[in-house]
Design a binder for these strands. Structure first.
Lengths: 245, 245
DNA sequence: GAGTGGTCTAGACCACTGG
DNA sequence: CAGTGGTCTAGACCACTCT
């Protein structure tokens, strides 16, 4: 570490924070990959020249933040976007009666490159000539279409994704495996809207029906905005679940 | 504490957890009240016969859980539902352009006692003859009605509340002060619905308009369900904000 | 300056997992 | 059994706040 003694006030940053950032960087750089095990607390302590307790505090903070997960008697691992974790953290639509045990199937309607409007450019911090990938999908439960998804990705981070002809139902795991992009935090904004003609056709509903629109901005481990997603759900038999603490 | 040495496996509960529960109980019993300062770490350690580090771990866990808050150089305090914290934790409606800096005013329409249906009884675990208080309000921003609220409270926990003629805009602070009930966790379920006639009249909107309906179940510190609330919002200029981590 | 929480260390021991 | 994370302790020192 830089210095064992904490710095004088204004620049003061605890040792364990520095350790935390250092570990995060190594994960971002791909030195430690999702699913892999980190060295033990004592090994890391020796490696970084701090005490085991300090390393522990950093590791626990990162575990709290879902960057790592720990199993007593086994080790500390870099979090992976397994289907289970995805569902828990990033998929909040639930069936009204009983739960949705799995992620609803997603049928791909279209992938294309578009020229971003000012809104998308602002979101991604794009240069004006960079293209954006648009993915259009529809999710179904029991063969009934219920959620229409429009997904926007900056082409620079997702090279050649637009050439795929099939995509997995859970994109976040795919982003992680294929592009080393881990969706870490997201902001959802919810509104009630009326179904437009396209919604009516795709979701097979009458005109004048209300839809739950979820507008998501997702950020990766290093803080970049990597995805914008608009989901329009027929909330007849669905709801969006939020736990407040 | 009961025993310094951790128990053999199946009953094993860490010391700091026991300390945590003990402190929580004292808060529930009203021995330490919202806003009040707890004894210092060392005093608590002496009091409970554990080390300061163990007390610290318990206090930090409770801080993480928003039961306490700590200020370096000052002390550890029992959390209070100040307007600020309320807004941050339990009021997630935001204005589309710019933020809502304050809680929108709430105008009381009606308070009455009702006989709970089976749904409400199941929620509150009520005996069948206990009444429920129904509060009907409407919130406005810039003198424009935007959210209609129907609030249900078990009468047993909120004695004589139905006799009030005026209620504060933020009820959670009031529950805490007047009834020693701290809303600690809540579950929101969101749907898009069409405005019914009553909605149209109260929110001053045309028929066929979509509303964002938020159905909340709120639990107190000791885990009892203490409030059910249905908010119907005109999401024309509003959205419901969720941060995912 | 006195008192609080925050950081860091060092060491002992316990609980859990897997070979 | 060896190796991992989890708990608990004790003590030193730092940063912050208030008076």
């Amino acid at each position: 570490m830089t210095d064992k003694a904490p710095q004088p006030s204004p620049i003061f940053k605890p040792l364990y924070k520095q350790v935390q950032e250092l570990i995060t960087e190594r994960i971002i750089e791909g030195i430690w990959k999702p699913g892999e095990m980190l060295p033990s607390e004592f090994q890391l302590a020796d490696l970084l020249g701090v005490s085991q307790g300090t390393v522990r505090k950093a590791l626990n903070a990162l575990t709290e933040d879902n960057v790592l997960f720990r199993r007593q008697g086994v080790g500390t691992f870099v979090s992976e976007h397994t289907l289970q974790k995805m569902l828990f953290h990033f998929f909040h639509f639930k069936s009204d009666n009983g739960d949705i045990p799995e992620l609803p199937n997603a049928q791909l309607l279209e992938i294309r490159l578009i020229t971003p409007d000012t809104h998308l450019r602002a979101l991604f911090g794009n240069s004006s000539n960079e293209k954006v990938i648009e993915i259009h999908r529809v999710r179904s439960i029991n063969n009934t279409a219920c959620i229409r998804e429009l997904i926007y990705l900056p082409q620079g981070y997702f090279v050649d994704l637009e050439k795929e002809e099939k995509l997995p139902h859970s994109l976040y795991h795919y982003y992680q495996q294929r592009f080393n992009i881990t969706v870490h935090k997201a902001t959802d904004r919810l509104k009630a809207v009326l179904a437009n003609e396209q919604d009516q056709a795709i979701l097979n509903i009458a005109s004048g029906q209300p839809l739950l629109e979820v507008s998501r901005t997702a950020r990766s481990l290093d803080g970049r905005t990597v995805e914008h997603r608009i989901s329009r759900a027929n909330s007849q038999d669905l709801h969006y679940l939020v736990e407040l603490n």
